[in-house]
């Protein structure tokens, strides 16, 4: 029994953290906003990507972590990725990391198509990103820059080239998301994996999206809490730092408490994915808690920043808006609790 990353995993995570501190600082997150969509054009002129960070992640092997060694990856398991997803959240990395590096590779690796193998190699090298969507015409983050799309319906995983889909750009509250509504039509040629042949792969893809978005939310929440701890320690009112007031302390303690107990649920779900067990309930437990904890944290952190937090000049909103989006993408806290409820009580 050992509930902790291996020494190697912990070192790798630290190296990724250092890379992101260097390549994905707040200025880079801010610059990734904007482009042609919506009401955020004044914030940045970016396309939702932080190219330096992405290149660094490719060079370190993060993008190929779950890609088989035969396809140029590291052939590692999901428990090596979960801590990295937390760090990506902490950094506010807008790129489609969990989709490209954690959801898509196992699905592609389950296919014997030469295209899948080729794509895996290009994921590992950082040449392509994969947009992932669930359902008929899904909302996909970083849709405008995605090279390929993996669309999961209840019965199959479809793989489509960017030229084979029709993308309607939509403005997200988080201007770094570069969201698109992806319209596409199914054809025999689009099916990569069907539930008839490999239902477990489809389930695992859903569970990976749920698990790693939970881990990302844990990182985002930690970041918002750290920013708030710093702010309330500096901001003086009534002649003292406002962080010395008990009302402030308790609100932050509660925010931290929720995150503290959501994190092991996400690590547990990643572990189950690693050992090939059904992680459906575990992933839903994690998302239920991480979604709620991030909402509690973002509410508290905004409140404790006061008016300065309610501006786009301050950095808090960059993380808060991502948390709003991710806490509902791939299922919100109630829908995931309902998954657990049905498993426990049958209704």
């Amino acid at each position: 029994m050992r509930f902790a990353p291996t020494e190697e995993q912990a070192e790798f995570r630290s190296a990724v953290k250092a890379l992101l501190v260097d390549t994905c600082d707040i200025a880079a997150v801010r610059a990734s906003w904007g482009g042609e969509v919506g009401r955020h054009t004044e914030v940045g002129q970016g396309n939702g990507r932080v190219e330096r960070a992405w290149k660094g992640l490719a060079d370190m092997g993060v993008l190929g972590l779950l890609v088989p060694e035969a396809d140029g990856g590291m052939g590692m398991t999901q428990d090596a990725f979960v801590g990295i997803a937390v760090e990506a959240g902490y950094a506010g990395l807008p790129d489609p990391l969990i989709e490209t590096a954690a959801v898509a590779p196992p699905v592609l690796a389950s296919s014997s198509e030469p295209l899948a193998s080729e794509l895996l190699a290009r994921i590992a090298s950082g040449e392509v990103t994969v947009g992932v969507g669930f359902g008929e015409s899904p909302l996909v983050p970083c849709a405008s820059t995605a090279d390929w799309f993996l669309i999961l319906t209840g019965t199959a995983a479809h793989l489509l080239d960017a030229s084979a889909v029709d993308i309607t750009p939509l403005s997200s509250v988080d201007g770094a998301r570069h969201l698109g509504r992806v319209n596409w039509s199914t054809a025999a040629s689009t099916v990569l994996v069907s539930s008839d042949s490999d239902a477990a792969v489809l389930t695992a893809a859903r569970n990976a999206a749920v698990t790693f978005s939970s881990a990302t939310l844990v990182g985002l929440s930690h970041r918002m809490i750290d920013m708030t701890v710093e702010y309330v320690g500096e901001r003086h009112q009534f002649g003292v730092p406002i962080g010395s007031f008990q009302a402030v302390k308790h609100e932050l303690a509660d925010a931290a408490l929720g995150v503290e107990f959501a994190e092991p649920l996400a690590f547990n779900a990643a572990h189950l994915l690693s050992v090939g067990e059904d992680a459906t309930v575990a992933a839903s437990m994690a998302k239920s808690r991480a979604s709620r904890a991030s909402q509690v944290a973002s509410d508290a952190c905004l409140q404790l920043h006061g008016a300065i937090g309610y501006t786009v000049e301050h950095d808090l909103h960059l993380f808060m808006k991502r948390a709003w989006a991710l806490s509902r993408q791939y299922g919100d806290f109630r829908s995931h609790r309902a998954v657990v409820r049905r498993a426990l009580l049958g209704s």
Binding site: V229, V240, G243, S244, Q246, V248, K249, H250, A253, A256
Partner: peptide, 16 residues
């Protein structure tokens, strides 16, 4: 209540 103070001061690092 005391535990939340301890979390805030000794874990998160808020000023006493």
């Amino acid at each position: 209540e005391i535990q939340r103070n301890i979390i805030a001061e000794r874990v998160l690092g808020l000023p006493r």
